[in-house]
Design a protein around this nucleic acid. Sequence first.
DNA 1: CTCCATACTAAGCGGTTGCTTAGATCTAAG
DNA 2: CTTAGATCTAAGCAACCGCTTAGTATGGAG
Lengths: 207, 207
Amino acid sequence: MTSTQGEFALLDETWSSVTPPAARRMLIAAAAAFSVRGYHATTTRDIAAQAGMSPAAVYIHYRSKEELLFQISRIGHGTSLSVLTAVSEDDPAARLAAAVRAFASWHAEFHTTARVVQYELSALTPEHLAEVVELRRRIEAAVRGMVEDGVAAGVFDVPDVRGATLAVLSLCIDVARWYQPSGRRTPAEIGDLYADLVLRMVGTAGR
Amino acid sequence: MTSTQGEFALLDETWSSVTPPAARRMLIAAAAAFSVRGYHATTTRDIAAQAGMSPAAVYIHYRSKEELLFQISRIGHGTSLSVLTAVSEDDPAARLAAAVRAFASWHAEFHTTARVVQYELSALTPEHLAEVVELRRRIEAAVRGMVEDGVAAGVFDVPDVRGATLAVLSLCIDVARWYQPSGRRTPAEIGDLYADLVLRMVGTAGR
DNA sequence: CTCCATACTAAGCGGTTGCTTAGATCTAAG
DNA sequence: CTTAGATCTAAGCAACCGCTTAGTATGGAG
């Protein structure tokens, strides 16, 4: 697997649950377009053209343009939550570091999806937004739990748990805004850098 | 000056250089609309209505909708650069802390303007974007200079200066995304929290 | 073969968009 | 009073938007 194939191979994995293939191609085309131009600046004709189909083909698989956005947002949020909670470390510091490494590097590696996930919430219908907000609540709770565990174990020095949680999440999420594949850091390097910075923020004792 | 008048009073200061008054009202209306719905989802009729004028009145003062965006972005970037470089402290740690406090709290207090500044760059024409990118380069250089000063003085422990600079800026900028006036923290409290977290990230010796 | 469901396209409909044109109103100088 | 410039509005134009309709191609079941 070369580095240029890497993203597409993993993208296929991200969207692998979407069938039929034409519906999947449409979602991937929509995510790419929303990411670059934004939801409102992207037309259904843009999406169909990128997927190699006629404008009307969008409506065979999706009720509306907004439902395309919702599916991208729902699957993207679910994937990022999985990445965050898949860590297996026991030690609180190692656990938080691994989670931050995975979450930050995901926002770089899949910045295309991540940008839609993080910056197009206001285009969702109230019902769809509510569903996504619940996933975001679980993401926040996962990080807060890790910070609390470290404090309880006496290895973190955090005067404001909610504030620290906010900052950790914010730092990782903002990677999706500034990351460029042509930049000087790889997603893995960003993950390592951020894991170190976060451990400093939570005042890890023995480093 | 009450807290509800606070933002408007300071907003007037932000836009005080814009004349005539009708052009200023239009800019403020456009910034509010762009911030909530995004540039592409906002119509020139929305802006004119919010400013209490007819749709055609926009084009008396601005060549296009994009020029409204450019003026907001240009003035907003300039203001945030001023806020960052106005710090008067000499000690490197106190200086960086003051800059972060000011920059982060600006992104909260003026989140309306800040959101347009940070999230609508892709809607600018190439020429206008180039002008704004130069201001962003100066913002990045200002923060990097403060980090370098602390390292040179031996009070910071930073293995990766560019990486730390990136993280500090990223943390502050992302405040514009999540801040809500109805939230549990005031802009000043966010500034204090972030100043502390940043000093931890740069490994300040005597804290 | 017929039948039928699925997947797709060509054409286009009603509504909205950014922006323009023609003309009204106001202010202030001569 | 006349004139000129600046500011604003009513009306509307060409282009584009999301989405629908009508009809075609395909492939598997009976």
